[in-house]
Design a protein around this nucleic acid. Structure first.
Length: 105
DNA sequence: CATATGACGTCCT
DNA sequence: GAGGACGCCATAT
């Protein structure tokens, strides 16, 4: 393996760790900053591989539509929403947030 | 090697 | 604005 998948994961986690509180970032943007544009899905995989006791603020990652990508069946989804609201992020009626406002450039 | 799947994105209707 | 179709990348079977 030229580059182990664990190395890729840690690269992604490092990017996520740079997101300041009260701000969010999209999967595609993280993939781009990690040097693999178009691999947004790979970012989701990396976050899925995170342990439950991680200190990485994965909850600051949302999809391009400003929505939480986690399925309704996932308990982590409610946690993400609550955590973001705690940091001051306001969701609209359709569970959406304004990326123009909370998005991290 | 071919298919299916997933914490995605863009485009079209 | 909502919903569906297709594309992209990596992994699993």
């Amino acid at each position: 393996m030229a580059v182990s998948k664990q190395a890729i994961n840690e690269r992604i986690w490092q990017i996520v760790a740079m997101i300041p509180p009260g701000r969010v970032c999209t999967y595609g943007e993280i993939a781009r900053q990690a040097g693999m544009p178009g691999a947004a899905r790979r970012v989701g995989k990396a976050l899925r591989d995170l342990p439950d006791d991680t200190r990485i603020p994965w909850y600051r990652v949302v999809n391009a539509g400003g929505r939480i990508s986690l399925p309704e069946s996932s308990p982590s989804r409610a946690f993400q929403r609550t955590q973001l609201e705690t940091e001051g992020v306001v969701f609209s009626a359709a569970n959406k947030l304004n990326l123009k406002r909370y998005g991290w450039p």
